[in-house]
Design a protein around this nucleic acid. Sequence first.
DNA 1: TAGATTGTTAATCGATTAACAATC
DNA 2: TAGATTGTTAATCGATTAACAATC
Lengths: 236, 236
Amino acid sequence: MARLPLYLRALNGLAERGIATVSSEDLAVGAGVNSAKLRKDLSHLGSYGTRGVGYDVDYLIYQISRELGLTQDWAVAIVGVGNLGRALANYGGFVSRGFRVASLLDADAEVVGTGIAGLVVEHIDSLESVIRERAVSIVVIATPAAAAQEVCNRVTAAGITSILNFAPVVLTVPDGVDVRKVDLSIELQILAFHEQRKVTGGVDETAAAAADQWPGTVGMSERNQGASAPPRGGRT
Amino acid sequence: MARLPLYLRALNGLAERGIATVSSEDLAVGAGVNSAKLRKDLSHLGSYGTRGVGYDVDYLIYQISRELGLTQDWAVAIVGVGNLGRALANYGGFVSRGFRVASLLDADAEVVGTGIAGLVVEHIDSLESVIRERAVSIVVIATPAAAAQEVCNRVTAAGITSILNFAPVVLTVPDGVDVRKVDLSIELQILAFHEQRKVTGGVDETAAAAADQWPGTVGMSERNQGASAPPRGGRT
DNA sequence: TAGATTGTTAATCGATTAACAATC
DNA sequence: TAGATTGTTAATCGATTAACAATC
């Protein structure tokens, strides 16, 4: 369940403040979700609460950590040591949560051999042997878009089934491989979309004018009518 | 709609390959979604397709870009110039999509005044004046967790309503403010969760043993029974 | 006209949430 | 016992998708 890390973070905050017990209502507020949803999510893990009392904070932290696999040590390889790869290598949040950066790899001879975050950058040729010998189970792809699919192919061939992809491409993977995608520009695009809605109160009123500026050639006069055509409310 | 950037990327790929027209079926495959969903999403924008033919690639790119506000120039300020802030400042994907980094700000006297990605890092004291004078509409928070809420308070007070947050905290914002959150360690935690499921085939069989290792004190013998209690299938 | 494909309806599915019995 | 809060049911809501009439 994708919300467990959220709950875990809220619980850790409570634990730091010395709070021993929390109700679903309070924890839900802390995590920014509905309390019924929180209880339902937690009930999937087992009956770890006490009616009339709430949840024991430390115990719940332990159970969620175990469910998320954070009581294990996960070896992570980061492929692509550009700005983003460097930031990830230095990102403190990984180590504290059971993730160990086992290797940094890059294709650029300039960066191979340099030291980053206590590791020496290795050549991408070593990818398969690194995965095998250091029991890497999660690969982070922080390469340019053009290189991402090739890296993806190699790591899945090497048996990796969990990939965190920062490259702005949709990776094609065999069945059974999990890809999670972080696209910074998509996040900004979504914000810009909402920002625009706020400013203009919707884009419809400018649609006709904007469509007029369209520099296309084929059949655009007909199509422009579609752009300002009636069957549309002013909302999404 | 959060899927528009996905469609846009697929369309740009088609345009690069010189493809002029695409069916909803083909585009849906490229974007990794169901074709009915794609048609429904696009119909929200207007009737830009031609029955029996498909969609004009260039025209659809233009319409989606306009809907997303990418035909405008968005001034973005990045607060926090650690590794991540640096990576973001250098991230090429922003500029090409209408986002311009108008300012880099930090509280650390060591980095203030240094040059990154063609900009000089400014002191956080200038935050409000930078937002006002450079018409910043989106703020990226890449500070440590402890500083994020304070920065958030200041930028919302300064009128910002779109925030991209990389700090691992849930920000409290006034109504009407959009916050999008990117948490790298949460993404990894979700991957680890699935990875663990693959390896163990579910966590249930180890629940009793794991619960035994729990070092808690209060009433744990009773609660452990909850941990290995019956009413649970072996799925999510 | 015949084939193809959109735009949209209606059905399905899953996720969210209110409500409450169970029970601490 | 009385008050509080969980775990779970049932209702609600929204999102997804199959299907097909409209139409190029």
